[in-house]
């Protein structure tokens, strides 16, 4: 058995694989003690090899993982596992968003990550949903219902939040504000996609891949290119790490 563990900024994901098949997986909050949490998650496996990825990868390597790879590489491998011909991967994680372009063999050719700020990440969507009184799972569907153009201009989470509050106070319906929030995330993705370049098939991973409004807006912008939301979108990094473990 080969195990991949993705120690993200907010959650820890584990994928266990045998002969290229996913046989088990777990997802838990990182909490205050990501080391303790990951130990609890992996102890049930008799793993031949553990590969770690994500922000906590070096912590894992100090204690139990035999090898680390970056989340960029892990997502590239994971996405190719489900879509062997994909050339572009979008991943929106808790604290960062990234766009990765792959060469024909699936190697990372180029990538972009958001800068220091949380804007354009799933954390950003959570904060905005809370400000507008939506549960996270309602947020995308609500935004999708809106037909009205509104815009958020700020590039920064803190300022975007005050922009949202002032929109509320101007009496703009919250669905329309929700749409504007989603649009601002998509605009950021579009900038990254344009910088990296993209192919006709784009795989979308990370929890935000389940948000129907983001996916819809991306489709609208992309025209011909097709966005595939990956199965098990939260697990792509962990699966990529597990596959990498299997290779060695």
């Amino acid at each position: 058995m080969r195990v991949g563990i993705d120690l993200g900024s907010r959650t820890i994901k584990v994928a266990a694989m045998c002969n290229g098949q996913l046989v088990d997986h777990q997802l838990a909050e990182s909490g205050f003690d990501p080391y303790g949490q990951s130990m609890a998650m992996i102890k049930k496996y008799e793993a031949e090899k553990i590969v770690a990825t994500g922000y906590g990868r070096h912590l894992a390597q100090e204690h139990f993982a035999q090898e680390v790879i970056t989340e960029i590489k892990a997502h590239a491998i994971g996405a190719r596992h489900f879509f062997p011909d994909c050339r572009t991967v979008i991943d929106i994680g808790g604290q960062d968003s990234k766009v990765i372009s792959l060469d024909e063999q699936g190697r990372v050719a180029n990538f972009q990550m958001n800068d220091k700020c949380a804007a354009g990440t799933s954390r950003f969507l959570e904060i905005m949903a809370a400000t507008l009184g939506f549960r996270l799972d309602e947020f995308g569907p609500a935004a999708l219902e809106s037909q009205n153009e509104a815009n958020i201009n700020s590039m920064c989470t803190v300022f975007a939040e005050s922009e949202v509050i002032s929109m509320k106070n101007r009496g703009i319906p919250r669905k329309d504000i929700a749409r504007a929030v989603h649009l601002s995330v998509v605009n950021r993705l579009v900038i990254m996609l344009s910088r990296v370049g993209f192919g006709r098939k784009i795989v979308f991973s990370g929890g935000v891949a389940r948000n129907p409004c983001i996916v819809h807006m991306l489709h609208e912008w992309l025209g011909e290119a097709k966005v595939e939301s990956s199965p098990a979108p939260d697990l792509i990094g962990a699966i990529g790490a597990a596959i990498h473990a299997g290779k060695c």
């Binding site: 790879i69 970056t70 989340e71 960029i72 960062d96 190697r107 990372v108 990550m113 800068d115 220091k116």
Partner: peptide, 15 residues
């Protein structure tokens, strides 16, 4: 931004 840079630099080295 050290954590973020570390990821980007390591990904560059993987490349």
């Amino acid at each position: 931004d050290v954590g973020q840079l570390q990821t980007r630099i390591e990904a560059f080295l993987e490349q």
